[in-house]
């Protein structure tokens, strides 16, 4: 049975897929708390959404996902602000440009903080709530890049791979309470994060959000966005290691 979302929390909502998700959710009568670091952007988008909807449906929450200690108290406020909570999406992410011979621990740590530890902080809070109450949907925006240890962006690939394992663990913990945990693995999506990158088969953030929400409503376990990336992933994962290390991907 398809789920309807009435109260959603989107972390990483000031641009890209997160912004597109917030816009689509609000347009479908859902109240949304939008979390992001950049106040001006966030408040501008929330005001735009509220203008379009003709009522207050978007609630901006300025927060840096690296401030993990803030999360439990902020999360507690979200259902109170919305009047409930049935969907949590973690869409925050960074992709640093890393040279082929560059090993920058600071950049890598930042990647892990935003892509993984921030997700763990917010989704732990969500999982604890849904485990107590039953129901609810958690969506984590991973990446096809997390399927294999490609040479290009070690920390990014690792963070997305770890996020996928973490989401699987959450799913195995709380599925019996009726909670759906959905892992999303986008291919190339036109977002500020991918600006300037060589891409093919790219889709707009809005189209990606449309697919993600359809998958979330169905409560699928894992979805590639768009679906054809599943085939690409299968091919990449099938390449033997001794060949893979020779490829410049």
């Amino acid at each position: 049975m398809k789920r309807e979302f009435h109260h959603a929390l989107v972390i990483g909502a000031s641009s890209g897929i997160g912004e597109a998700l917030a816009r689509r959710l609000a347009a479908a009568d859902c109240r949304v708390v939008m979390v992001a670091r950049r106040r001006d952007e966030l408040e501008r988008i929330a005001a735009e959404i509220n203008d379009l909807c003709g009522e207050e449906r978007a609630f901006p929450l300025v927060h840096d996902v690296r401030d993990r200690d803030e999360v439990p108290r902020l999360f507690e406020q979200v259902p109170r602000t919305l009047g409930g909570l049935d969907l949590v999406v973690y869409a925050s992410g960074v992709l640093h440009k890393v040279g082929f011979e560059e090993y920058d621990t600071a950049k890598d740590a930042h990647t892990f903080e935003v892509n993984l530890l921030g997700a763990v902080a917010w989704l732990n809070a969500a999982a604890a709530r849904f485990q107590r109450l039953g129901g609810g949907t958690i969506v984590g925006i991973g990446s096809i890049a997390g399927d294999r240890g490609r040479s290009g962006s070690p920390a990014y690939n690792t963070s997305k791979g770890a996020l996928a394992i973490y989401l699987e663990t959450l799913r195995n913990r709380i599925a019996r309470r009726g909670t759906k945990v959905v892992t999303i693995k986008p291919g190339y999506v036109e977002t500020p994060m991918t600006a300037g990158a060589k891409m093919f088969w790219e889709v707009s953030a809005d189209r990606a959000a449309q697919i993600i929400l359809a998958k979330a409503r169905r409560g699928v376990v894992c979805a590639y966005v768009p679906a054809r990336w599943r085939l690409v992933s299968w091919v990449i994962r099938s390449i033997p290691s001794f060949l893979f290390r020779r490829l410049k991907v």
Binding site: V33, A47, N50, E56, F59, V62, D67, Q77
Partner: peptide
């Protein structure tokens, strides 16, 4: 209506 910030 103005957007209400759920600010830290």
């Amino acid at each position: 209506p103005p957007a209400t910030a759920v600010s830290p």
